[in-house]
Amino acid sequence: MILTQNLCKRYGRMAAVQDMNLSIAPGTVFGLVGENGAGKTTALSMLATLSTPTSGRAYIQGFEVTREPRAVRRCIGYMPDAFGVYDDLTVMEYLRFFADCYRVDRRLVKARADDLLERVRLADKRDTYVNALSRGMQQRLEIARCLMHDPAVLILDEPSSGLDPKSRLEMRTVLHGLRDMGKTVLISTHILNELAEVADEVGILRRGELVAVAAVQVMVQHSSAYRTIRIDGRFAPGELERVLAADRHVVDVHAADAGWNVLYAGTLAQQADLLTTLVQHGMAITQFSEQPTDIEQLFLRLSAIQEGM
């Protein structure tokens, strides 16, 4: 179980995390989504006892992170965003070393390591040196390392970052397996779709603030219900905004890079109608294309929905 109450972290005047209130039930896989610099790593490092909250409280399995850091360390497995490995150890030695750090009963170490290597699909690499593993394999090994002392809570900071599509897929399978193990997992990422199959709940972090928490399916539905359209061309001042304002499916319009990004909630047919309308108004459209969704836009959509309710 992870609980935070008004958790804040400030670096001088800058607030990296502001009033974060989070409650993650045991056995839940929770995804923390946000752009780079949103405060994900700071939030996770406070939970991992690596940095101290400026104010507020955080509890892991009932232990407060600043008052009982030792107890917290025993019940978490933490995988940082930028991690390193001991290159000149074999996979088995690597796991054994961390088992020793956690004082795991030596009689259990081998069986547990074998089981975990099986789960992270590295069973055939147990005697391979860590430096001979690919980046994706090393990241899966890190997951196994986090589990060596059988913690109740896993804190994974961008576990899929820097991986190729195949490795991402393998990592997703491994993360899926964590849910079956009944662990409470907190995963940070800047790619929402990565969490769609893995997480139960998702929280969106924006400039240090947790702006939305919802079940992952709800998030994905919202994400697919709205799309961003990029419009470039030559228009009379204010004309485009006037035409767009008349379309009830347009949620938001903002200028970007000498063009316009339009948040649109209509169907593809309605989208085509909009283009026709723009052309009928004599606008010289040079680009009218759908753009990939990013977290910032998703946040705007959710805000728009909440404001409309």
Binding site: T49, L50, R70, R73, Y78, P80, F83, Y86, R145
Partner: peptide, 13 residues
């Protein structure tokens, strides 16, 4: 420099 220190500091050592 190898970025192994953070993980080490989250262990009970």
């Amino acid at each position: 420099e190898r970025k192994t220190l953070a993980v080490l500091l989250t262990t009970p050592v």
